[in-house]
Amino acid sequence: MIVLFWAFIATILIFQLLAVDEYDLPKAITYSSMITGTFAVYVHVVLRKIIKKYIQTKRISSLIFWVFITAIVASTILTIEDYAIDSFLSHDWNKHKETMLPQFFGMLMATILISGIAYSFELYRHHIETLKATQVLKDSLNELEVKSIRQQLSPHFTFNMLNNLQFLIQKDKNEALKLLSQYSKILRYYVYESQNKAILLNDEIAFLKTYLELEKDRLKDEAKVDVDISIEPNSLKIAPFILSTFVENAFKHLSIDSKWTSVFIHYKENQLCMNVQNTYDNKIDSGKNQQGIGLEQVTKRLQLIYPDKHVLEFDKTDSVFSVQLNIKFD
């Protein structure tokens, strides 16, 4: 874009000069090349450094002052250059002296105009760089949070699985092998699938179904677990651990006395709807928020990954904690 811009300026100047009788093509190219080259050096060596400095500090008054000062200096150099070129080409060093002052003001106007264009380009460049830096920061934050989630596979859940395995190995080896197979799928998902920035929605759902089956087997008759999952065939992708975090949170904070949880997930017409409810103990959770670190992290990730495309609501009523999540896919 920079090369094309200066080539355009040089070409326009050549055509202007060719309209004057005393300029032929070689003279017009020589004059245009020198004047355009001086403008380019002024913009890229001097002006851009000043603009960059004061854009970052947002000191507009200082920016205007220094641009005006440098524009005067550049216009003076361009006027002398213009006089020297015209005098050399016409072989008359006294012919153009009386036109130097009008030439100076003409060059000053041109310099200020080009300075304004350079400022616009630099402001646009600064805006793009800021957007890129912000996006890199968001991606880094998202990756760190995913790694954190991956490394925090619930110890409580793991210990329960190991205890169940120990008990089933002695009682029912076939059932123990089945449980071990399901648990290995859970671990594989945490270790491998979570390395990706996005996974298939169907894989996340398959993981949740396996997780829910494990929790049902673990809790047996101690808790009532209602599951309603209906997903249309699709090839959509979703960030890992978005849905599973809410389900894990429900079992983590399950009430001691009245154990009940409900998981409702439907996908239709590019809209994913998820509702997770669980009973919780008021006395135990009165001094701490049900929305722990896991929910804080997933809330931030939703804001980063699906801005303006999701609705997330939490609700506490009658010892029941509820999460409602809607995600709109393009």
Rank of each mutant, 00 (worst) to 15 (best):
H266L: 01
V225Y: 06
K216A: 08
H156K: 08
D172W: 10
R125S: 14
G116T: 11
N142W: 02
L165W: 10
D285Q: 14
G106N: 06
A176D: 04
G37Q: 10
E81Y: 03
V311K: 05
L13C: 06
L17E: 06
L295D: 01
L243F: 12
H44R: 05
K97D: 11
H310T: 00
V67W: 11
S62C: 09
Y42Q: 04
H91V: 05
T70K: 05
R59Y: 08
V20D: 10
K237L: 02
Q271E: 12
N142I: 10
F105K: 02
S32H: 11
Y183F: 15
Y190R: 01
A206I: 13
D308F: 00
K132M: 11
I55K: 01
T317K: 07
S140W: 05
L312N: 05
F264W: 07
S286F: 12
D318E: 13
F104L: 00
P307D: 04
F321R: 10
L108Q: 02
P26V: 04
D24A: 13
N278V: 10
I77M: 02
I284Y: 13
N163E: 09
N174K: 14
P102V: 00
M161G: 01
L312D: 06
D226S: 11
Q271K: 15
S62P: 05
I231C: 06
L214S: 06
K147E: 12
V276S: 09
L165N: 04
I35G: 06
E296K: 13
A239F: 09
F5V: 07
V73N: 02
K173L: 14
N163R: 03
N163D: 12
L312G: 01
D308Y: 00
L304E: 03
K216G: 11
M109S: 06
D228K: 07
F241V: 03
R48Q: 11
E204K: 05
V3W: 14
Y23F: 15
N282S: 13
S62W: 13
Y192Q: 14
V323C: 13
Y119S: 07
S75P: 10
D228W: 01
F88C: 00
F65P: 03
W6I: 05
T158F: 09
I199T: 14
F121A: 04
